[in-house]
Amino acid sequence: MIDPALLYGLTGAAVVGLGLYGFLSLRHLLRRVLAFNVVGSGIFLMFGAAGYRGAVAEGTAGADPVPQALIITGIVVALAATALAVGLILAHARATGRRTLPEDDT
């Protein structure tokens, strides 16, 4: 019998890896931003699973509220950063007509 928190924590670690792979290998800038969001969601999942484990160990009802509050803050900040990144990508595309960075063309 596996502890569910452990299962979600390890899933989170694997999601981080998948996102990182996309972030490093994809050239399309929007897909990179998307992959970075996948990394973020994996980190939140690991953090939340660790908080859940702590709450279970303590025997308190419900998951630990402090990690929950921090994760909600993180989700909102991730959206703000994504919106800024998308704005920069669109401005870059408008200026150069490209959807990739020149460094990746080698």
Binding site: G9, A13, M46
Partner: peptide, 27 residues
């Protein structure tokens, strides 16, 4: 990229499994 991602995932899993039982701030 694949190697780096696999390495990071392995390290994160190892770190997660090795975490001390957290006390939590729920109480």
């Amino acid at each position: 990229a694949g190697l780096a991602a696999a390495g990071v995932t392995g390290a994160l899993m190892w770190a997660f499994l090795g975490l001390p039982q957290p006390a939590g701030l729920g109480a």
